[in-house]
């Protein structure tokens, strides 16, 4: 009932606002121009990556006109560069961190939200305290610690500290607290233990929050810079954000190859966004409305 009536409201509302007046036309034009300006740098990077003869282009506008070629992509991806390896590293680390984070967080959140044990509140407060710790301000100590643990310049060193943030625990715990206890008790009556309840009841029910947490963990890790910059010493361990600057700095004038590398680093995440746009938008607004 409420859904229907609110939909009707929305219709009436948007209908009212769709009236075309000089004001709405002006706003539309302004919005379009702003969107265009915001998009131009990305579009320009893309078309530069499709050019091999940029030095001979007579004007700025010719970048956006054919001929286009994918020769740069072939050169970067097949030639002796490490870009492909960095791409692999980025994907590998981000995927492992995302899976690990989702698993560890959902387990710990389930315990805090639904299990009975001593010091539950205390442990939750302990996790809450982590939200106050800015990673940037402890990075020197983290480096010294990782060095002692022989984690510097290893995949494990890139992965483990990325799993230690407590933000996702807080988000997941508040979601899991909202799952009705009846569902859990029903599973218990059917003879399921805590592990089966977690696997068969909690995980399926928390799909929305898991998707949100995974997406943000993935994007965050894909773009993470400061820690990988300190931790990855050898070129073979670089992720794309670390590799791009070392690679690009070899080119002083030519920017077609650097832009190609930029695009290779960006296309997967843009594709990812297009696929998950709805969830990402929903995740940002953190609105609990079911889609």
């Amino acid at each position: 009932m409420t859904a229907v009536s609110s939909k009707r409201h929305l219709k009436a509302h948007t209908g009212m606002r769709r009236q075309i007046t000089p004001g709405t036309v002006t706003l539309e034009v302004i919005t379009f121009l702003l969107a265009f300006i915001v998009f131009v740098p990305i579009l320009w990077s893309f078309v530069v990556s499709l050019k091999t003869d940029e030095a001979s282009l007579p004007s700025a506008f010719h970048y956006f006109l054919p001929p286009f070629t994918i020769a740069n992509y072939i050169e970067v991806l097949s030639g002796g560069t490490k870009v492909v390896l960095w791409l692999f590293n980025s994907v590998f680390v981000a995927v492992v961190v995302t899976i690990g984070m989702t698993l560890l967080c959902s387990m710990a959140s389930y315990a805090i939200a639904k299990l009975q044990f001593r010091y539950r509140k205390g442990i939750y407060m302990y996790f809450l305290a982590g939200l106050m710790v800015p990673g940037e301000a402890t990075i020197v100590a983290l480096f010294v610690l990782a060095n002692e643990l022989k984690l510097i310049d290893t995949y494990l060193g890139l992965i483990l500290p990325a799993l230690a943030g407590s933000m996702n625990i807080i988000i997941m715990t508040s979601f899991l607290t909202g799952i009705p206890n009846d569902l859990i008790e029903a599973a218990r009556i059917d003879g399921a233990g805590e592990f089966r309840t977690y696997k068969d009841v909690i995980l399926p029910l928390s799909r929305t929050v898991i998707v949100t947490v995974s997406i943000f963990t993935f994007i965050g890790n894909w773009n993470s810079y400061l820690w990988p910059y300190l931790c990855a010493m050898s070129e073979d361990l670089f992720t794309l954000p670390i590799g791009i600057p070392t690679f690009v700095s070899q080119f002083s004038v030519d920017k077609t190859i650097p832009m190609t590398v930029n695009m290779i680093a960006s296309l997967p995440i843009l594709l990812f966004f297009i696929i998950f746009e709805k969830q990402i938008v929903k995740g940002i607004s953190l609105s609990g409305i079911k889609g």
Binding site: Y126, F127, G130, L142, L160, A164
Partner: peptide, 19 residues
């Protein structure tokens, strides 16, 4: 359920503050 995360969190988030 808690241990795997708590260990990583303690080592890599909390301990560096004191270190």
């Amino acid at each position: 359920f808690l241990l795997p995360f708590t260990v990583l969190y303690t080592i890599f988030t909390i301990y560096p503050v004191f270190q």
